[in-house]
């Protein structure tokens, strides 16, 4: 099949970028989207051009590195997948595919389609953990956790940190990401002792990083590869007010 990739090229963070069109005419339908870009890059090398810089690692939908905005959607036209799970059969022969990096002030572009998502790491750094030293753990079954509680914690914990929520949000809000981690840890007995401080620290850092407000458009939960529910954000808000009052 033949498609035209309309790709955002930007040499470095300070450069002004722009779109460049690349026609590739020997793609197969069962190639993944990233493999199609690999293929384009091989063509570019042979044409003595710089390759398109884009990110990926596991290519099985779990590492969260392959964030790309494709044809107006985070991770492409389907809901709840990562870019590496997108296949060329989702596009028509002859299609023009617009490929852009995540856009958010807190995710500055490093090159082409690669952005810097270290803001997420810094949010985790500010309380996204349980302060327990190696070697201090009690017997695992000494604390019973109901299946419902554990399952709900797991639902929130499933976040892979890809940044699609921020990318798709019109306000670049990181609320879904932050809420997922807060709810994961705060709902478990192990996370309770630091619960209030965690909410305050993590949300303060989220604010410092320059993310916008959550206005509940719901786009994030549709683009989230793990389908993390937006109800998590409401729950984070409740935890925030609780922490403010009782913390």
């Amino acid at each position: 099949m033949e498609v035209t990739f309309r790709i955002w090229r930007q040499d470095n963070p300070t450069n002004k970028g722009g779109f460049i069109n690349y026609v590739v005419d020997d793609l197969a339908e069962d190639m993944s989207f990233l493999e199609a870009l690999d293929h384009l890059n091989e063509i570019l090398v042979l044409r003595n051009e710089k390759v398109v810089a884009f990110e990926y690692d596991c290519r099985e939908g779990i590492c969260g590195q392959c964030g790309i905005f494709i044809n107006g959607r985070a991770h492409g036209p389907h809901s709840n997948i990562t870019t590496c799970q997108l296949y060329m059969r989702s596009f028509k022969d002859g299609a023009i595919i617009t490929v852009e990096p995540w856009r958010a002030k807190s995710f500055p572009i490093l090159k082409d389609l690669i952005v810097d998502r270290s803001a997420f790491d810094r949010i985790i750094e500010h309380g996204g953990y349980i302060s327990a030293k190696t070697g201090t753990a009690p017997e695992a079954n000494a604390i019973l956790i109901g299946k419902g509680v554990s399952d709900k914690a797991m639902d929130a914990a499933a976040c892979i940190g890809c940044g699609a929520c921020v990318a798709t949000c019109k306000n670049s809000s990181a609320a879904l990401f932050t809420a997922a981690k807060i709810n994961h840890l705060n709902s478990l007995p192990q996370g309770k002792p630091e619960a209030h401080q965690r909410v305050l620290d993590m949300t303060t850092q989220m604010e410092k990083e320059g993310f916008g407000h959550c206005s509940f458009t719901g786009a994030c939960e549709v683009e989230c590869p793990e389908g993390i529910s937006i109800a998590n954000i409401a729950e984070m808000n409740a935890r925030y007010f609780k922490a403010k009052i009782f913390g």
Binding site: N71, T98, R103, S106, T168, N171
Partner: peptide
């Protein structure tokens, strides 16, 4: 604040596929 958090817009953004117009 929200505008400053998203200074650059996407060339194509199909918000209709993931959220309501009103939101």
């Amino acid at each position: 604040r929200n505008r400053s958090a998203k200074p650059d817009k996407y060339a194509i953004n199909k918000t209709e596929d993931n959220s309501s117009w009103a939101s």
